[in-house]
Structures are given as structure tokens and as C-alpha cells.
């Protein structure tokens, strides 16, 4: 299975949590940090991303970029 990672444009995240709920591998969560607009952005907190892109397709704010790690 492919390995991947998720990059978050933290400044644009509104902490809605739709990506967290959508991730089939449960590698995302709402972080403890606070962005300039007062939201807690999503973050990838553990390995296991399979670069499926579902989180980014669910995000209403175009916050997420997904990379596949080619070995």
C-alpha cells in the first residue's frame, strides 16, 4: 500500500473536522495550536497515510495537499 503524507495550510483551516472524520486510516486530528483566525487547524499526527486524497476531497477550504512518497 502506498505511503503518503498530508500538508495543511494551517492559516486557512477552520477546524471543521470533516477531514478527520473522512480519513480511512485515522491519521488526522484537530491540533492544539491556534491559527491567526482563532481556529485549531487539522494535522497529521501519525504515520499510516496511504495518499488516498479523501481528506483533501472532503475539505471545504482547500487546505490540504496530499503527497505520495515514492520509495
Amino acid at each position: 500500500m502506498a505511503k503518503g503524507r498530508v500538508e495543511v495550510r494551517e492559516e486557512f483551516c477552520k477546524s471543521c473536522g470533516l477531514c478527520v472524520a473522512a480519513c480511512p486510516k485515522k491519521v488526522l486530528r484537530i491540533s492544539d495550536s491556534i491559527n491567526p483566525r482563532g481556529y485549531r487547524p487539522a494535522e497529521q499526527f501519525q504515520d499510516g497515510c496511504i495518499a488516498c486524497g479523501i481528506c483533501a476531497r472532503t475539505c471545504p477550504d482547500v487546505v490540504l495537499t496530499v503527497y505520495r512518497i515514492d520509495e
Binding site: 503524507r5 476531497r57 490540504l64 495537499t65 503527497y67 505520495r68 512518497i69 515514492d70
Partner: peptide, 18 residues
């Protein structure tokens, strides 16, 4: 090891806009 972007911002979306 290299990376390939599998999903990112599409050009028509105006970046840097909340």
C-alpha cells in the same frame, strides 16, 4: 526517496483567499 503530489489546489481556486 521522492514525493508526488496526488491532490492539491486546482489553479482556478484563488489561493491566499479565506
Amino acid at each position: 526517496m521522492s514525493e508526488t503530489k496526488v491532490f492539491g489546489m486546482t489553479p482556478t481556486w484563488r489561493r491566499d483567499v479565506h
